[in-house]
Design a protein around this nucleic acid. Sequence first.
DNA 1: CTGAAAGCGCTTACAG
DNA 2: CTGAAAGCGCTTACAG
Lengths: 339, 339
Amino acid sequence: MRRSKAVTIHDVARLAGVSHTTVSWAIHGHPGITEATKARVFKAIEELDYHPNYLARSLVRGRTNAIAVVASFFSSPFEMEVLKGIEQRIHEEEIRYGINLFSTMNDPEKVLREIVNGKRADAAILLSVSPSPETVALFRDNSMPLIVIDEDAPSARTIQLNNYRGASLATECLLRRGRERIALVLGSTAGDPGLSQTERRRGFESALAARGMKADPRLTFYIEDYYFEEGQTLLARILETTAPDVPDGIFCAAGDMIAMGIMLEAKNRGMRVPEDLSIVGYDDIPSAALVSPPLTTIRQPLMRIGRRAWDETIKALETPDGDECAIIYEPQLVERGSV
Amino acid sequence: MRRSKAVTIHDVARLAGVSHTTVSWAIHGHPGITEATKARVFKAIEELDYHPNYLARSLVRGRTNAIAVVASFFSSPFEMEVLKGIEQRIHEEEIRYGINLFSTMNDPEKVLREIVNGKRADAAILLSVSPSPETVALFRDNSMPLIVIDEDAPSARTIQLNNYRGASLATECLLRRGRERIALVLGSTAGDPGLSQTERRRGFESALAARGMKADPRLTFYIEDYYFEEGQTLLARILETTAPDVPDGIFCAAGDMIAMGIMLEAKNRGMRVPEDLSIVGYDDIPSAALVSPPLTTIRQPLMRIGRRAWDETIKALETPDGDECAIIYEPQLVERGSV
DNA sequence: CTGAAAGCGCTTACAG
DNA sequence: CTGAAAGCGCTTACAG
């Protein structure tokens, strides 16, 4: 097995009969290198199949040409969609940045500090990860752009979803159909509830309040996981704990997957949706339209958010002293048959 | 705005009153540094909040501590599930590798060469990307491990799914229910059909052959995209082009999403599933169980594949001269109500 | 037990 | 128009 030693700029210089400085300049289109010399250099590069070592280049330039994308876990529908938007942008624009994934199961702050201090990327995009003020300051001190999606972070660039409004829309839809005992299902309570869940609760409560109704704490439920089986067991729990005053509507702020689990279980128990029980989900995942009845839900422009996050990152990288931004995207009610 | 200069190993050395060599050795637990010296060094590190520059370290070590994950597009259910498996492993094992995403819309070979030549990672995992023999050789010559998932690559480490068998299982299921005119729906024909689609076709044909039947070329259809709307328009096309001998069964090797689109359109047209038309999908995406009737489909152990890919990568990294492997995972028929 | 020196592969003022 | 030199921040034989 031939274990070839990597070819360096010096090999190219030797073959072309110039100094390695000249090679570097030829590569970078530095003005004032003869066409003839340039040609010799490129011929040598071709011949040796030379590729600049990206690490060395990054070290001396102080730029990695990589963007960190940080999330607590990838591969949830939310992260997937946003990632898709980012990807689209990369391809459309031919921008020469790589993307490095960091997931933060344990200690988000530690990961973020390591990105900055270890110079592991030129900028970071955070998906539903909330940085401490100290960390935001750390990024700023190192002039490293930080884009925060779906969380709040004072004096950072944020791209948010109006979760408050999404929840209001969902709840109002239920109220319009005359639902009077509406249960609220929220996402995981593990540790910090997260801004989005908090906001959805607020939106739910305010929509009720607008009708002079009050949220009944016994009608608020939490889930642990996002598998639809969780939705099935949850409905059992809801019916049990609330009997005989079972709810006639459910706003499942924890997302469509859970909502679909609830719906399936309702059907298994002979309940009619929406006649006996109306359900509204959140996210509008692709299969929401395919279940029966099709699920009424809230759609968020996740791909657009991904694209925008990328654009903001690039902008921040190119104009380092630009203002921080606070962009908010509006959700949309998608009315189908489950209400 | 304070723009702090990064703290280097020299700053630490100065504060601790030792040479930078000693600092480096203290960090790496080099034997023969007094406890007292070590303590001074670590105190200085703490005080200055020093973090080694990862680029410099990688350059001198010749290792990036990053694994490249390459796919034509991320954020398809397939890639996401595999990625999830990889992620799990990273967290379970506390392994210190980062993961760098490379997507290869245009020129896969170019991306792969750049990863090797630019030293952008220590190893690469390919998701449904098929490397040329030259590229496989390039990886080998640079002793860079290459793990190929769901494609074939002579003399590389491969982790494959038995697509042939999956298709046979699906087709046999249809045949058992007495279906006699079975249509085959295959994925995108753009360029190379890809190994998995080719194998699924083979499996389909062999299952028919086992009953003395022959695949009817007029009953083979291709899709462009993987949105479920595509499935809806496809059924229209199928019915049109085959009338009056419309199929009584469809094996949708292009995946569940399309299968669900087909099913929705069938219901819209007043066809009964499975009485008038049986449908089998592929992938067992989470919502397959939720549609009505629930979709019969083929499940593949994607997360396990992700985990295994990671393990093989690490193994290859640690024992560079290990054998190439060829692992094959078996799919499983999940019988629900659509057949 | 600790330090001076060389080197990883590149870029970029600075001279000629 | 081209080259010699310094330096990015680290690691690691090699001497003392």
